[in-house]
Simulated scan of single mutants.
Amino acid sequence: MRRPIDELPEHRSRVRGCLLGGALGDALGAPVEFDSLGEIRRRYGPAGLTEPAPDRFGRVGLITDDTQMTLFTVEGLIRGDDATAVQRAYLRWLDTQQHPSPPPADGGFRTGRLREQGWLYSRRAPGNACLSGLRHREAVAPARFGEPGPVNPGSKGCGTVMRSAPFGLRARSARHAFELAAECAQITHGHPTGYLAAGAFAAVVHYLTEAGTPEAGTPEREEPLARAVRRAMDLLSAYPSHKETTEALRAAVSLAAEGAPSPERVESLGGAWIAEEALAIAVYCALVNPGPHDVRQALLLAVNHSGDSDSTGAVCGNLLGALHGEAALPRDWLAHLEGRDAITGLADDFAAQSADGHEATDGWLMKYPED
């Protein structure tokens, strides 16, 4: 979607917020991803994790495959804005998981700036379905909505959701964001719930980028995030096999209205290893901490549980970053974030490409060459 040039600063802030917020949540949750809530409390105290913690090697702020794949989603959309371009980008990510460092330049041939980032060549517990799905390599036609996809047809892991925020940041409409995210999710995961949850997440992100313009008939006091979730659920309901994702989101919305949030309430929504649970937990944590000054608390709630903490942290950060923009993110946490400058640069390029008058200069094509 092309935007007037005078809208670019606000849009750029939201894109930065979404990508950096997701990376913050991812890095915050990574050290406790495989720990139970009891183990987290024994290690960090009764309140659990209260700030970014070092991993077992003493490093703070390292991102995981969640952010890695999200960045390659952005790169794919910059290059082609379709499923083929995104699949090629994911194959470049797969190379980062199979080699120790970027490939050398060969006769001036370039694979793009992102694949040349050495910090991305770290294997941080990538999902099995993501790896096995990409090893098919050949392009596949997506299934009709509601039917199993051709790759890993029984898999609905959260690897579909955790990488899908970028589809909502520049789509022509919420439906376009939904359907492109769902199609690209089928590159690795074929279960309908897996790809429909990805579509619903992308739609929420898209609606958040329009948060300043509520539709007619909106309840006066409805928060922008609650409105975006409601509208995404309305859209989701039109697709076959939506029931699991719809029920998970309804549970999150209902739980958010019931009282004070807690890790135990988070865990009542599941473990987040599967797509609809990861989405529901992230939505719940954002709904109970919806303001621009609540981001820190939302991310802490999103990672202090016995499940896939980095993925729920990432998705929650994507949501609140897209809603409030970069300025709402904790500055002290950003200071330690791995790849911060590269993520910011990629976000700015993604935002700039959507502005009227953008041209693909020689410098641009060096960063994003044609496949």
Rank of each mutant, 00 (worst) to 15 (best):
D82R: 13
T160R: 00
G159A: 08
G108I: 10
G80R: 06
A105C: 13
A85F: 06
T111M: 10
T96W: 01
G118T: 12
Y121C: 11
Y121L: 14
A85S: 15
R115A: 15
E116W: 05
Y90W: 10
R170F: 05
T111R: 14
S101W: 12
E116L: 09
P126T: 09
V140F: 06
L120P: 02
R110P: 03
D95I: 10
N128A: 14
Q98I: 08
R135F: 10
T96L: 05
R113A: 15
Q117S: 12
G149R: 00
A85M: 09
R115L: 14
T84L: 14
P102Q: 13
G76M: 05
H99G: 09
D106M: 13
P102I: 11
A89Y: 01
W93T: 01
S155A: 11
G107T: 09
A143N: 05
D95C: 08
S155C: 06
F72E: 00
R115D: 07
G154R: 08
P102T: 10
A85C: 10
V74C: 04
V86N: 01
A105Q: 15
A139S: 14
A141D: 11
E75T: 11
N128Y: 07
C130E: 02
G108C: 13
L169P: 00
S101K: 15
R135V: 07
D81M: 11
W119Q: 11
V74F: 03
E138K: 11
E116G: 13
C158G: 00
L169H: 03
R170G: 06
I78R: 01
S155E: 03
R124A: 06
S132K: 10
V86W: 00
R163Y: 00
A139W: 09
S155Q: 05
F145C: 07
A89S: 15
T84M: 09
A89I: 03
A125I: 11
S122I: 14
P153E: 04
G80P: 05
L169C: 07
